[in-house]
Design a protein around this nucleic acid. Structure first.
Lengths: 193, 193, 193, 193
DNA sequence: CATGAATGAGCCTTCATTCAT
DNA sequence: AATGAATGAAGGCTCATTCAT
């Protein structure tokens, strides 16, 4: 599965042949089919196991009780850092999740579901913060979750697998620096002090 | 090309057969090869023409002279609205640009280049605003451009082609409402008034 | 189709590769799939066209009006001779029809249906002869049709494609001699004069 | 072997996987190869053991001394009934013997040999009856044996495994009824009283 | 310009057989 | 005797591309 997820991410699902995977793995072609029903099956297994791990990380970051604005920003920073760290450790899965789109229907849907669940988690988090009086009630929560999710997806994508303008040093930031930048933008925008 | 871009976006580049395209177009298979050298060639042409149109829109929104914060926010809102409108009118191209990843090397690169150029445009815009004293100098400009680009990409993707949580009403927003939300977040973040 | 039916009969459906067929035909593998949807499809087409031709022959031999026993025997002899001649001219189709059994469900069924229709034709013929008072009413018509059909199938199989005891000269009989023997047995059995 | 013969008959030799057989048998795949050298080997063993049992039955029915026509008919009826009973008790073997044709060369030949031997037995029986003056000398003995064998094969095939016209009640006949019908046709044909 | 038949390399999957334990 | 994981050759089918007309 590790070999497969890497090749899927690097070259695309369709451009990855079973023979590539088994050659890398040093086993025979038939062996693949002893462990996986089909090419699609291994992709779905990859997604499923990645999905679980990712959602676990996000759910650990849930806000539960009220606090100061500073505490909220810190908490959000910790969550983002956790997610970024997860992305770093599962970069090929993350690349597929964030940029994959050429695959078969079933695989596309599995990725889509995962991202929807991810966004839902963020929405619940924002909802909770509004309930606790930590965030203004003003705007639609769906939109705020969508904006936040966009931020995270985009920043991870640029940080880990480009594309980024050649001169950018984004790729060299540490997890914590990145989280600090993102969380600052998240709460204060471009104008924030 | 219109038929091709739609199918590429809906089903993926690899899942689109030349025979699909020509059937839809009502011509014979051979005719395709009179107009395009290959499958890859039509994809690259699609990207090239989309790239030009998109960059034209963005460059029209360039900030040239200093102004108040309010003017800056308004200008940014107009630019976002223009981009969103372009996305609406070229939704299949935009879908490929923002979510495509399963394709061949050359095509992937062409999309990547386009997005890099797009991000460069935004960076120049921010740079100019800093020079004119309209934005604080504090943060790295590359990061701010990346954050802004992430925002725009994510919001368009959710607005036009999902995935979005089923209950979200994002898809029903008008161009101007969407631009207002995005620009507010861009400058003030979640905490902005 | 001619090449395919021959190979199917000689070596079996499953032992016949598409590559065998196209090599014999002197075309490329892909060309096969321009004319036939699949390996199964060509088999079904072979059966369908053989079925029509065979049933046409049988239906031409229908008894319509009463006559003497001798005329009945002669008519039956003519019908058998026609069938034998058909078998001779379509020996590979006939071999598949009479002995084929290792194929896929759909193909097996198509052959089965053809043989059922064939037997039905004979039954109608016998029924008619009973109505016209040319044959005794005594026995069950289904059984008589089954016995008759068995006779014809078995005799064709032995005549054209064995197995037959090596010393048998069955294979050397002409159509008319064979028909004479069969029709004699049909009406008079082993004891008949 | 019982499991194998059933699957071979029901689905065909080639459509039966070793894994099907061992799953049904509740043993591991490797175990199969401790008992049988190969897939072909088990088929040949099945044929060999069936062949012996079948020929034993037929040889028990041999005519040895002269008698009246009625005695001859009765003897023939007993033999047919024995064969039909055997077929009933070994229906899967019989199905393969009578209808199998898609298999590998060696297996096809083994079945062919068995049927040839079977037909030889009948021929010897008829020869003996002619020598004893119980049957007319007129016709070629090979042909009469072929006709008789055809009758038996066809009737068993229809009785036990179709195909038969849906309305036929052939399948519901008892062994003795079937033998009576067949033997009557054998000696007297359609016109026999 | 247009047609559509022909090409053939390539890939996923199956399954009989082997083998270390 | 028995297991079951591993093997790898083989084959049906797809589809981008070519080409004669």
């Amino acid at each position: 599965m590790e070999i497969a997820v890497e090749r899927f991410a690097k070259y695309g699902y369709q451009n990855t042949k079973i023979s590539d995977i088994v050659n890398d793995a040093g086993v025979a072609q038939g062996t693949f089919y002893w462990y996986f029903k089909s090419k699609e099956a291994i992709a779905l297994e990859i997604i499923e196991s990645g999905r679980e791990a990712l959602l676990t990380v996000i759910q650990r970051g849930y806000r539960t009780e009220a606090g100061s604005v500073q505490e909220m920003v810190q908490g959000s920073g910790r969550l983002l850092a956790d997610i970024f760290r997860f992305a770093q450790e599962h970069r090929y899965f993350m690349e597929l999740l964030l940029t994959g789109n050429g695959e078969e229907e079933a695989i596309r849907n599995a990725f889509r579901e995962t991202r929807i669940e991810m966004e839902k988690s963020f929405r619940r988090n924002i909802e909770r913060a509004v309930e606790l009086g930590m965030l203004p009630k003003s705007t639609d929560i769906h939109i705020r979750a969508a904006l936040l999710m966009s931020l995270i997806e985009g920043i991870i994508a640029r940080w880990l697998f480009g594309p980024s303008p050649a001169e950018s040093n984004l790729a060299e930031l540490t997890v914590d620096e990145l989280a600090a930048e993102a969380v600052h933008f998240e709460f204060f925008g471009l104008l924030g002090i």
